[in-house]
């Protein structure tokens, strides 16, 4: 068990390192920040002075090594465009983003699981078909379209909800719906499929045959087994969730982490960009690691084959 997790852990660290290296090089190939900051042009001396100030005049390998040393001490550098510590920039914007993520996750679990269960248990009735229909539409509608449809209806025609900003809880209603709709649908669809698979298995028949009440059969035997793969799907959807939240932030003019990240790519603000990538890769890796660990805990077969 420990060896299995240690192996996974080592691979995760290697992955984050590779992602950082790729970003580091790609960002420098794509352009120098000062060309974008001062678009009316710089003299060679000015450019050289600025490069020296931020250590960009040294060869890339040297820059990379000293950057690694820096982040090992917990120093992520200063933003080139704003000349403030990178960490401050992100810290100011993390609030709305985290709140949106938490709300969306809650909505996904609170709506997606019951929806999927309903669709599986009532699959021959109108209720089940309706549940699947809802899930299907949520699955096929892209974030940006859903956002625009919501704004059209609730902001422009009904005038109930604010369409931009992130100041009050009211502002979070439409972004949360937008971000979680696809996830709710994915979870519901997947849980339904798993439940149908589990319900047709021998141990469920045995449970019924030995006279367990149906609520026990479903709740104790079927749902538990069907939930295991659903955990994996939640983990896999994480990357999509992040790109979805970038679009949601853009459409609803949220001042979140995504806006800072996109801005840093456009300006080639290397330190900000690199921090964003490290944070993203770490989150993905940690989420996947937790999913793997959870999986190994729940399902003993994984431990042996891993």
């Amino acid at each position: 068990m420990l060896r299995y997790l240690a192996g996974k852990g080592f691979r995760s660290v290697l992955t984050v390192f590779a992602v950082l290296l790729i970003t580091f090089v790609a960002a420098r190939i794509s352009g120098n920040p000062f060309q974008f900051l001062y678009d009316d042009g710089l003299t060679q001396e000015e450019q050289a002075a600025l490069d020296q100030e931020f250590g960009l005049d040294r060869p890339w390998p040297a820059q990379f090594v000293s950057y690694l040393g820096q982040i090992a001490r917990g120093n992520f550098g200063r933003s080139i465009a704003q000349r403030r510590p990178v960490v401050h920039l992100y810290a100011e914007a993390i609030g709305p983003t985290l709140r949106l993520a938490a709300l969306s996750f809650l909505a996904t679990v609170a709506i997606g699981l019951p929806l999927g269960l309903t669709a599986a248990l009532a699959r021959h009735s109108a209720l089940g078909v309706a549940a699947m229909g809802v899930a299907f539409v949520g699955y096929a509608v892209p974030h940006f379209l859903l956002a625009i449809i919501l704004i059209l209806i609730f902001s422009f025609y009904l005038n109930w909800l604010p369409s931009i900003g992130s100041e009050t809880w009211w502002h979070f209603i439409m972004p949360t719906i937008t971000l979680s709709a696809g996830l709710i649908a994915a979870i519901a669809r997947y849980l339904r499929g798993e439940m149908l698979g589990v319900l047709s298995q021998d141990f469920v028949r045995t449970a019924r045959a030995k006279g367990l009440p149906e609520s026990m059969v479903i709740g104790k035997h079927a749902v538990r087994n069907a939930l295991i793969p659903v955990i994996t799907v939640l983990g896999l959807k994480f990357n999509g969730l992040v790109s979805g939240s970038l679009i949601v932030e853009t459409v609803f003019s949220f001042q979140g982490v995504g806006q800072i990240f996109i801005g840093s790519v456009q300006l080639r603000d290397y330190p900000v960009l690199q921090f964003g990538v490290i944070a993203f890769a770490l989150t993905v890796v940690v989420v996947n690691f937790l999913v793997d660990a959870l999986y190994a805990v729940v399902d003993p077969r994984v431990r042996r084959s891993g």
């Binding site: 691979r11 970003t23 996109i262 790519v265 456009q266 990538v277």
Partner: peptide
């Protein structure tokens, strides 16, 4: 499979933005 892991851990939008820039 390491490549696959990297692809998953790399923000896709970054790939696109940098790709277009280069």
């Amino acid at each position: 499979m390491m490549l696959v892991d990297i692809q998953i851990a790399l923000p896709y939008l970054l790939l696109v933005l940098v790709g277009i820039a280069v």
